[in-house]
Structure formats: C-alpha cells, structure tokens
Design a protein around this nucleic acid. Structure first.
Lengths: 343, 343
DNA sequence: TTCTCTACTGTGAACGCTCACAGACCAGGA
DNA sequence: TCCTGGTCTGTGAGCGTTCACAGTAGAGAA
C-alpha cells in the first residue's frame, strides 16, 4: 500500500474529482448532491458510484460560503450553568436534540453563556450567521440574549415559555399547569386536605404555572388556600430541604406536599425523614419531572412525567421549520402522572 | 431608525466593507485580524475602529475554505449514551471542555455515536476535515471509531487511558490506581479488615486500575485477598445494588466496601440499608468520583475526588497542542480523598 | 548619489462549492 | 416543416477569506 501523504491527512477529494471520475460536470454532481432533480438516471448512478469510489464528502465550508446557511444550529444555555448541568432533565434534552438534529445531518454547537463576556461573544458569533438557528435553554425572564437574537431575526426556539419576550418567539413546553392539576387532584383523591406546595422560582413559567394548577384544584375541591402551606424554592435539592422545614414549622398538620421538581422533592424527603414523618403514611409527597432523581429517592417518588424526548424532538422540528421560513409557533405537550411509593 | 432589511437578517459586513471604511486594503485588514504583524500602528488603529463601527465578524466559512482548518473541535461520545448522560461526571467534563475551548474562541460540536450508522456518519464527517480535532469520551476498549480516527491522522485526545489503542494516542486521566490505594488505606486505617470491592467494568482502565490499587494495599497491609469480597459492576446504580447483595451473601462478615463509583455506591447504600446494616458503624463505604451523587447520598459518601475541572482543561490543552503539530502526550492527574460520613 | 534592507501595503489568485444561465436534445402539436 | 416546452447538461461567475507576490517608501550604509 502506497501512501501519498504518510502520517498526515490526505487532501480530500473535491466535487471536481468526483465529476472527472463520473465523466460529468461539476454542475451535475452538485445537482445529485442536492436532491437529484433534473439528473438522468445514468448520470445519477455514475455520480453515486464516483462518490463511493473517491470517498467524497461535501465541504460544508465551501457550501456555506455560497448558500449563506451554515447547516448547523446552536444549543444555548444562558442559565448559571451549575444548575442546569446538575439537572438530569437537561441531559435528556441535550441528548434528544443532538439525536434529532443528527437525523437531519446537522451538527449541534454547544454554547454556554454564563458570564457577561461570554454572552457578548456568543451573541456576536450567532448574529454573524455561524449557526442557522438556536435552541434556547433558559427559563428565567429578562434574558438579554434571547431578546437580542430575536431582534436580529435569528430563528429561535425556547424550551419552556419565555416570560420576558413577546409572543413572537417559538417555544416548546410541557403543560405545567395541567401536570400540577393532575398531581394535586391525585393527592386530593387520596383524601389529603392539608396539602403544601414547594414552588419553583416565581419568575419562571414552571414556577408560576405549577402553582396556578395547585390553586385551581384546591379551589375546585373546595379547600381553602392557606398561605402557610405555600413556599418557594429554586429547583435545587437544598431549597427543597429548606422549604420542607419551613412548611413543617408553619403547618405541622400538613398531610401532603406537592413539590415542583424531583430534585427539590429529594430534599423534602430528607427533611421529612429527619423530622420523623413517614412517607407516604403521614405525609404524601408528589414531585415533578420524572427525572432519575425520582426513582433514586426513597421512597420512590410519585411524580409528573415531562415528555422530554418529545420536547427535544419538537424543539428541533419547530426550529428547522422556522429556519425554512415558517412563522414562529408554540407547542404544548401533555404530561403524565407516574405513581410510585411516595403517595 | 431605518431598516434596510426589515424583519430579516442583514447582510453582514465583509472584510471589504471594513477595508473601505478604514481606507486600507483587504490584505491589511486580514493582517490585523491575524495577529497584526507588518501593520503600521496607524493602520492598525484605523482597522480596529472600522471593525467596531461596522460590527464586522470574520466569516469562518470563507476562512476555513482557504486555510483548511475549521477552528472547531468535536466532543465525541461513543458509549451507549444513557450511561454517560446519567453520569454526573460527564456533565462536568462537557462543561469544562466547552468553557476551556470558548476561551480560545473555538466552538464545540457535540457528537453522539450510539448506533453503527451514526458511527459511520460521524467518522466520515470528522475525517472530511469538518473539525480540527476530537475530544474522545469512551472508556471501553476496542472502540473502532478511535482506531479509524487515529489512522486518519485526526488529532485526538481521550479521557482516560484507551485500552485498545497503541501508545500513539493522547489521553488525560486521573490516577485511578493511586486513588484506589488512598481509599483502601483509609479503610484499613479505620481498622477494617474484611474489605469488599465493587469494581467497574474490567475492560475499562478505571475498572482494572482501581481493582489493582485495592489489591496492592491489601497486600501491603498483609490482608489476604478473598475472592468472595470482589464483585464487578458497570458503574450504574443498579449494578451497585446488585453487587452489594452479592457481597453480603458471599461474605456476611464484610466490614467495609470500596465502590468504584459514587453512583454504584448509592446502590450499595440502598442495599445495605435494606439489609439492616448501619453505615458506617457496621460497614464503612467508600466511593469514587466525588460526583453530586456523593453528597446526595445518605449518609454523605466518603469518596475519591477526580479533578474533572483539571481533566477537561488538560484535554483541551493537549488537543490544541496536537492540532498545532506537537506529538501525542499522556497526562495523569492526582486524586484526593474526601472524607464524609460513610466511613 | 545609489544601493540595500526592512517595514509596510495592495493585488490577483486561489479555496470548493452553488447558482444562474445558456445551450442541447427530444417529444408532441400546429 | 417549424415551433414550443420539457428534461438534462456544461460553463462562468462569485461567495469572503488568506496567501504569495510584487511593489513602495524611508532609513541607513557604501
């Protein structure tokens, strides 16, 4: 075996090499590459054979240079990163998006905008057209990146309803309110009446909506809302622990608690255990997310399953549609109650 | 405010626009962009001002087309993905690499090669020169992707020592054996003599080395190795649980157990709890990784901290060096014993 | 003065691809 | 017969950048 370029990387074949090999012109090869319209079957076949023989792979830089598209999308994280990387849902989302994009042969660029500097750098990078669109993961309101990108006309799909922005940005979200309703109805159906809640941050849609669902069900069940039964957390385990302690102090007769995330619910379980309350006998605990934390908890957590696999698929679908010229759209996906041992 | 292109994305300024604005030629702008050698201070200043004024950002596609470099690197995951995404260390690694690369203004492309199809597609993509180098996360041996990439001459840095490949591939790893030694010495120092071990998969360096460290310390302490005290897991929580049950059945007098990952250790704790053994009174448990699972466990886990932040930094450093033409190199980083409540 | 050397600058020519266009060919209808 | 319209093909131009090269100007040496 002879090596024309030992130890290094060979000069890859170009569209020209393929054309010569197939005995056709560059134009014909290009047409085959882009859908094969207006190409005779004979030419089609010759080109495909030549591509296989030469091992040709299209040079995306050259293509992007002329088309103006980059055929890649960004996955942008604007939260303080620890929180998201700590969140098991994030993994599922990232994996799902990567796979859904891979099916379209589109690479995913991971971008973290933690500090102000990074934020600026990334905004420039994106608005310069280095990605065709952005999958945005940032639930907090008032995110300047999202606003800037929207103004620059960059196709954008958020995960969860962005509070700060107008209605002109696409998003995909689980039906938080309905999920919360399901869980609280479940607790009510178990005969519980002193139902506490540990909400998420109230500047996030998840925080607001899940609390709203809780209130609605109490109202429809004719149970008065007691402010001592409502505390807020920040989705972290520690905040769940602190929240449960506050609830126990304010309302010792609590017989159930709806926690707006599984991670917080883990903290709640720890606090209840420490306080000597049995779960679910004394206090039933319902989580939200159906993350790995739910099954890891003792007892295993009854929770609301968010359809993360579908969410990531929908985010990609909506983004590609928007890149293709369609108008922004919102997708709300249903949740599901998963009953385990904590209720 | 007038909008030349309302609603859409403006045509971004080119190097030509900058040159005109600054009253110099394309060449001079290009020189400023690439380090500023052989450029007069006056021209330098004029160009920088023009860049600020026009909001110019270099078109990486055009640059890549001519330089042959892509100025991006791939982060390649060849494991069955669930496992890695379940692994908290993976997050830290991914985050660390993204940040370390961002400091060099290099985007990270996330690539998952789960199925055979994906593997082929990604190999083609990479060898076609769409990334300058690859950060490889795959601890199992016999990985065909790594071998193919190495043969194609693609700069490559593995996380953990790749078992299958020759010595010609760079890697960065924690000192597994030394970490295991520290933990087992710690258990011995506590007076434990019937020390079990739940290893990782024995086709991974982590599996092999941590077991070797365990054996070394027992030997140096004059404790005979008892095969009934050695079981293997696959780093998953469930396998830890199963492993602990097997250990309890085979060696009921066990008074300590070294578990090769925190996630497995969580499973071990659950099994011990179910069996009515108190930790650490009856059985001391030592983990490995110092992942979030360690602090989340009850009791909080004594473990070996892997320096993931340093690992990701080193991986990026070594990869960039290799892209720059340096020879492959291996980096081994020290671990640290973190004492908590389980020992 | 003239020659050399260095610092600096501008100008084609690529890089590999797509796109618009023009032309060739063949069928069917007038 | 000629024309029309569809299918198919090749060609030149150009995307925005870097690179090699040629050239200019000024300082210092001969």
């Amino acid at each position: 075996m002879t090596m024309s370029n030992p130890g290094g990387r060979r000069r890859p074949p170009t569209i020209h090499d393929v054309a010569r090999e197939a005995g056709v012109s560059r134009g014909t090869v290009s047409r085959v590459l882009n859908g094969g319209h207006y190409v005779s079957p004979a030419a089609q076949e010759a080109v495909n054979a030549a591509i296989r023989k030469t091992g040709y792979v299209v040079n995306r830089h050259a293509r992007s240079l002329i088309t103006g598209r980059s055929d890649s999308v960004g996955f942008l994280l604007t939260e303080p990163q620890e929180r998201f990387f700590e969140d098991p849902n994030f993994n599922v989302l990232l994996r799902g998006c990567t796979q859904a994009l891979a099916a379209h042969d589109i690479p995913l660029l991971l971008m973290l905008a933690g500090t102000e500097d990074e934020r600026r750098r990334i905004t420039r990078y994106i608005t310069a057209g280095h990605v065709d669109g952005v999958l945005l993961v940032s639930s907090h309101s008032g995110d300047p990146v999202a606003e800037e990108l929207r103004e620059a006309g960059v196709p954008l799909v958020a995960c969860g309803k962005p509070i700060g922005l107008g209605s002109k940005v696409s998003y995909v979200a689980a039906d938080d309110r309905d999920g919360a309703r399901d869980m609280v109805r479940h607790l009510v159906a178990l005969g519980r009446r002193r139902i506490g809640v540990v909400t998420g941050p109230l500047d996030t849609p998840g925080g607001v909506e899940r609390l709203a669902g809780y209130r609605e069900v109490l109202a429809e069940a004719g149970i008065a809302v007691d402010d001592r039964l409502v505390v807020s957390g920040d989705y972290s385990r520690a905040s769940g622990e602190a929240g449960a302690e506050r609830l126990l102090a304010q309302a010792p007769d609590m017989d159930a608690v709806f926690v707006a995330s599984d991670l917080m619910a883990q903290g709640v379980l720890a606090a209840l255990h420490r306080a000597g309350r049995r779960v679910p006998e004394d206090i039933a605990v319902g989580g939200f997310d159906d993350s790995p934390a739910a099954t890891a908890a003792t007892p295993a957590l009854t929770t609301i399953r968010q359809p993360w696999d579908r969410i990531s698929n929908e985010m990609v679908r909506v983004l590609l549609a928007e890149i293709g010229g369609e108008d922004p759209s919102a997708v709300i996906l249903p949740t599901e109650l998963v009953r385990r041992d904590s209720t």
